[in-house]
C-alpha cells in the first residue's frame, strides 16, 4: 500500500482515533487542573517556581495526588486497551474502507482475537527479556536497555503482521500463538516493512514522550497545549501508517 493510499484510507481512522485521544487527554488535563484550582481558589502563584508552588498545594492534598496517579494510570490502561480493541477495525478499514458502522463492527468482531494476540506478543517479549538481561549483565544496563528497546520495536511490526493475518482470515487458529509465530517466521522476507514499522513505532514513542516533555517544559505557555495535541495527532498518524505496512503485504 502506498503512503498516499494509506493516508487516504486511514485519514478518518487517524482523525477519529486522534480526536478521541485528544479529548481524553484534554479531559484528564482539565480534571488535574480542577483539583489544583480548588486548592488555589482566590490565591495566585507569585514569583515562586512551578514545582515548589505545586508541591505546596499537593503536599496539603494527598487525595489530589492519589487522584492524579489514578488519572494517569487510567489513561495508560485506556490507551492500551483502546489500541488493542480498535486495531481490528483499523486493519479492516485500511484493507477495504467502509462506514463508521463497519469500522465499529470490525473492531468489536476482532477485539477478542486482538486481545489474545496482545497476550501472545507479551509472552514473546517476556522471553526476549532474557537475552536483554544477559546483555545488560554482560555489557551494562544501557546496552541491555538499548537491545530491549530494539527488540520491542521489532516485535511491533511482527505483531501487526500477525493481526493483519487474523483479520484477513489467513490465520486459522486466531486465538492461539500460531499467527504470531507465522509472522515471526515470515519476518526474514519482510525486512523492509519490518524496519519501517519499527522506525514508525519509535517515532510514535518519540512523539508521545515529546508531548509529555512539551507539557512539562512549556507548562506556563498556553500554546503548549496545541503543541501537545499536534504531537498526539502525529503519533496516531505514525501508528496507522505502521499498521498499513502490515496490510500492504497482504
Amino acid at each position: 500500500m502506498k503512503l498516499s493510499t494509506a493516508l487516504r484510507r486511514g485519514a478518518w481512522c487517524i482523525l477519529g482515533v486522534a480526536v478521541v485521544r485528544m479529548g481524553l487527554a484534554a479531559f484528564a488535563g482539565k480534571l488535574g487542573s480542577a483539583g489544583v484550582a480548588v486548592a488555589m481558589r482566590g490565591y495566585t502563584r507569585g514569583a515562586e517556581g512551578f514545582f515548589p508552588a505545586l508541591f505546596s498545594v499537593l503536599g496539603e492534598s494527598p487525595a489530589a495526588v492519589a487522584g492524579i496517579a489514578t488519572l494517569l494510570t487510567t489513561a495508560l490502561i485506556l490507551g492500551t486497551l483502546a489500541n488493542v480493541i480498535t486495531v481490528g477495525g483499523v486493519l479492516a478499514h485500511l484493507r477495504a474502507p467502509g462506514s463508521i458502522g463497519a469500522f465499529v463492527n470490525h473492531a468489536i468482531r476482532w477485539a477478542p482475537a486482538m486481545l489474545t494476540s496482545a497476550i501472545w506478543v507479551s509472552v514473546l517479549r517476556l522471553l526476549l527479556a532474557i537475552p536483554c538481561a544477559l546483555v545488560g549483565a554482560g555489557m551494562g544496563r544501557s546496552a541491555g536497555f538499548l537491545v530491549g528497546a530494539a527488540l520491542w520495536a521489532l516485535t511491533m511490526p511482527i505483531h501487526d503482521h500477525a493481526r493483519a493475518m487474523i483479520v484477513d482470515g489467513r490465520a486459522t487458529r486466531r486465538y492461539g500463538p500460531r499467527p504470531l509465530l507465522a509472522a515471526l517466521a515470515q519476518s526474514r522476507r519482510r525486512l523492509l516493512p519490518l524496519t519501517l514499522g519499527a522506525v514508525a513505532w519509535i517515532g510514535t514513542i518519540a512523539c508521545s514522550l515529546g508531548a509529555a516533555a512539551v507539557g512539562l517544559a512549556f507548562a506556563d505557555h498556553a500554546a503548549s497545549a496545541w503543541a501537545i495535541r499536534g504531537l498526539g495527532l502525529f503519533a496516531v498518524t505514525l501508528t496507522v501508517l505502521r499498521i498499513s505496512l502490515a496490510v500492504d503485504e497482504d
Binding site: A25, A28, S33, L209, A213, F218, S224, A235
Partner: peptide
C-alpha cells in the same frame, strides 16, 4: 497542561 502532556503520552504509547 502537564497532565494533558502525560496523558497524551500514555494514551499514545502504543
Amino acid at each position: 497542561r502537564v497532565i494533558e502532556g502525560l496523558a497524551t503520552a500514555l494514551l499514545n504509547g502504543g
